[in-house]
């Protein structure tokens, strides 16, 4: 069993932060669909999230197995640690 390095947590937290902004804006936009500033911020956040995840997945393996991430050989997605274990 290999433990994740300390920077795993800080890099993951950057993703969690930007994905949180995305969730907040999405809920807001459901009731404010005309807010152009919020939509722009949403799109910029999506871009930032994708870039961060690309980097993260290169180091620690895929975050999803439903077509939003590519896989290396061997199939790493199934490897521990799982989110509740780290």
């Amino acid at each position: 069993m290999k433990q994740v390095p300390p920077q795993y947590y800080s890099e993951l937290e950057q993703i969690q932060a930007i994905d949180f902004v995305i969730v907040e804006l999405a809920l807001y936009l459901h009731t404010h669909p005309d807010d152009l500033d919020a939509i722009q911020q949403y799109n910029e956040s999506v871009k930032r999230s994708k870039a961060l995840k690309r980097n993260f997945e290169k180091k620690y393996g895929a975050l999803t197995s439903f077509g939003y991430s590519y896989s290396r050989h061997p199939w790493e997605y199934k490897e521990a640690p799982w989110p509740w274990q780290v």
């Binding site: 969690q16 949180f20 895929a62 975050l63 999803t64 197995s65 439903f66 939003y68 509740w84």
Partner: peptide, 12 residues
């Protein structure tokens, strides 16, 4: 739905 291998918030 699809699963993403991360928590929404860092639980400690």
């Amino acid at each position: 739905w699809f699963y993403e291998k991360k928590l929404q918030y860092p639980v400690k």
